[in-house]
């Protein structure tokens, strides 16, 4: 199983975002660096949900907003490593709609269940596969880290 490492600040921010927008879905981008076994996410960016027609069970990020998010990420030396959204009063599992609309191969999709306004479970899924035709969601281990220092460096530090 691959690992999604997120800083505690990011983890708390994306869960708080889900509570803020409840009973609507929140959404945003995760910025970080690729690691050997997943991504190290060190910042998150809130995005607007353009699905105002059905915001309680759908989300969409305007592409122009993504263009701007990616531009800012580049300035910081980061990449878009994934996206997050919430499932109000629904489990933190990917849905057929999530799968059909997922196109960022190699990136993480993080889902937080928000039950009666309170963030509960947060799960991550890697969009694996090499093409749109053989893509699949694979569950990831979510590892909460204090800083965005790579796992290998922290292990070395702990051993010294």
């Amino acid at each position: 199983m691959t690992v999604l490492q997120v800083t505690i600040e990011v983890y708390e921010a994306i869960r708080a975002h889900g509570e803020e927008t409840y009973p609507h879905e929140c959404c945003g981008a995760l910025l970080g660096r690729p690691a050997a076994n997943g991504w190290i996410i060190e910042s998150s960016v809130k995005a607007g949900n353009t699905r105002t027609d059905s915001a309680h069970n759908r989300y969409q990020i305007a592409p122009v907003e993504l263009v701007k998010i990616e531009r800012e990420a580049r300035k910081k030396g980061l990449s878009i490593g994934g996206f997050y959204h919430s499932h109000p009063d629904h489990p933190a599992q990917w849905s057929p709609t999530d799968f059909a609309e997922a196109h960022w191969l190699g990136c993480s999709y993080v889902i937080t269940a928000v039950t009666q306004g309170k963030a509960t479970v947060t799960n991550a899924f890697l969009l694996a596969g090499k093409t749109e035709e053989n893509k699949q969601f694979e569950p990831q281990t979510v590892e909460i880290i204090k800083t965005a220092e790579p796992l290998s460096a922290r292990r070395e530090s702990n051993n010294s």
Binding site: C27, R51, R58, P63, H103
Partner: peptide, 11 residues
């Protein structure tokens, strides 16, 4: 020129 795959979903 930015190439941006779309992002959407929901339960």
């Amino acid at each position: 020129l930015s190439i941006i795959p779309s992002i959407a979903g929901g339960h």
